[in-house]
Amino acid sequence: MYIFRQLPLLLLCFFIPFSAAAPLHRGAPASRWFSATATWYGSPDGDGSDGGACGYGSMVDVKPYRARVGAVSPILFKGGEGCGACYKVRCLDRSICARRAVTVIITDECPGGYCSGGRTHFDLSGAAFGRLAVSGERNQLRNRGVIPVTYRRTACKYPGKNIAFKVNEGSADHWLSLLVEFEDGDGDLGSMHIKQAGSSEWLEMSHVWGATWCKNGGPLKGPFSVKVTTLATAKTLSARDVIPANWSPKATYTSRLNFFV
Rank of each mutant, 00 (worst) to 15 (best):
residue 185 G to V: 07
residue 40 W to Q: 01
residue 201 E to T: 15
residue 106 I to M: 08
residue 260 F to W: 09
residue 130 G to L: 05
residue 177 S to F: 02
residue 134 V to F: 01
residue 150 T to L: 10
residue 252 T to D: 08
residue 21 A to Q: 15
residue 107 T to S: 07
residue 188 D to Y: 12
residue 101 A to W: 09
residue 52 G to S: 04
residue 196 Q to M: 13
residue 254 T to I: 10
residue 134 V to H: 07
residue 172 A to L: 14
residue 197 A to S: 15
residue 213 W to H: 13
residue 260 F to A: 10
residue 131 R to E: 13
residue 13 C to R: 01
residue 112 G to W: 05
residue 245 A to K: 12
residue 224 F to Y: 13
residue 55 G to Y: 04
residue 210 G to H: 12
residue 61 D to G: 09
residue 249 P to F: 03
residue 68 R to C: 02
residue 164 A to W: 08
residue 36 A to H: 00
residue 258 N to Y: 03
residue 242 V to Y: 11
residue 79 G to A: 05
residue 24 L to Q: 14
residue 41 Y to T: 00
residue 187 G to A: 13
residue 92 L to I: 04
residue 140 Q to Y: 05
residue 12 L to A: 07
residue 194 I to G: 12
residue 1 M to Y: 06
residue 176 L to F: 06
residue 117 G to R: 03
residue 201 E to M: 14
residue 94 R to E: 11
residue 118 G to L: 00
residue 142 R to M: 09
residue 251 A to R: 15
residue 55 G to M: 02
residue 13 C to W: 00
residue 87 Y to I: 01
residue 196 Q to N: 06
residue 53 A to Y: 02
residue 42 G to D: 04
residue 86 C to R: 00
residue 253 Y to W: 11
residue 197 A to N: 15
residue 12 L to W: 06
residue 84 G to V: 02
residue 211 A to F: 12
residue 252 T to I: 12
residue 85 A to Q: 06
residue 106 I to L: 10
residue 176 L to V: 14
residue 84 G to W: 00
residue 89 V to E: 04
residue 232 A to C: 09
residue 34 F to W: 07
residue 177 S to K: 11
residue 14 F to P: 02
residue 218 G to I: 02
residue 183 E to W: 06
residue 243 I to G: 10
residue 70 G to A: 11
residue 229 T to L: 10
residue 113 G to A: 04
residue 105 I to F: 00
residue 237 L to A: 11
residue 192 M to G: 11
residue 235 K to T: 11
residue 225 S to W: 10
residue 254 T to H: 06
residue 260 F to L: 10
residue 162 N to K: 13
residue 193 H to E: 15
residue 203 L to F: 08
residue 192 M to Y: 13
residue 134 V to R: 14
residue 19 S to L: 10
residue 196 Q to E: 15
residue 25 H to L: 12
residue 72 V to N: 01
residue 260 F to I: 09
residue 4 F to N: 09
residue 126 G to Q: 01
residue 68 R to A: 03
residue 158 Y to R: 09
residue 16 I to K: 11
residue 118 G to P: 01
residue 93 D to A: 06
residue 192 M to F: 14
residue 197 A to Y: 15
residue 108 D to Y: 01
residue 150 T to C: 11
